[in-house]
């Protein structure tokens, strides 16, 4: 019952921003347009849906598909014991999306990781730097077109003239 209510409510409020609504293993998957992300996230965080927890936030590289990247957000509602997945397709030419740091503080490092690994820029992020790789690193290692054998050592290695 609750499931239907959430998706229906979302369709009612953001009717032309919702691309697709599916369901898997009892959890809703909602594909949305990227300009509605912040509005929908705020809507979900507030009562009655109360998705107070941002479980994870990551990116997928579908090389060869037209919107090449897809952001995936996992939310969890403690009061309802419900999970929700939100997907946002991103085209390679315009790889920016609004940051969720104003709503969930833990989005800070998660978004830095996605920026580090995929090169997605987050608008409104307070401190968008690389998280895992060093500053001298060029390229984004988890993209499918990053060369498998490419190494970028910081200084000259021994035994390699």
């Amino acid at each position: 019952m609750e499931t239907k209510k959430l998706t229906d409510d979302l369709k009612l409020n953001f009717e032309n921003k919702i691309v697709e609504v599916t369901e898997q293993f009892g959890d809703d998957i909602i594909v949305i347009n990227k300009d509605a992300l912040l509005g929908i996230a705020r809507f979900l965080k507030e009562k009655p849906y109360d998705f107070a927890m941002l479980l994870d936030l990551t990116c997928v590289d579908y090389q060869g598909r037209d919107p090449r990247f897809e952001m995936v957000y996992h939310f969890f509602s403690l009061s309802q014991n419900k999970r929700l997945r939100i997907k946002v397709p991103l085209s390679e030419s315009k790889l920016t999306i609004s940051s969720l740091t104003p709503l969930w503080k833990n989005a800070n490092w998660l978004e830095r990781e996605v920026y580090d690994m995929f090169g997605v820029h987050f608008e409104g992020h307070p401190d968008l730097r690389r998280l895992f790789m060093y500053d001298e690193f060029e390229g984004y290692p988890l993209r499918k077109d990053y060369p498998l054998r490419k190494r970028q050592p910081i200084f000259h290695m021994r035994n390699e003239e």
């Binding site: 290692p141 021994r158 035994n159």
Partner: peptide, 14 residues
């Protein structure tokens, strides 16, 4: 054997 890991520390120190 990936982008992040040194392939053996003998590339850095004896």
């Amino acid at each position: 054997d990936n982008y992040a890991v040194v392939q053996g520390i003998d590339k850095i120190i004896p």
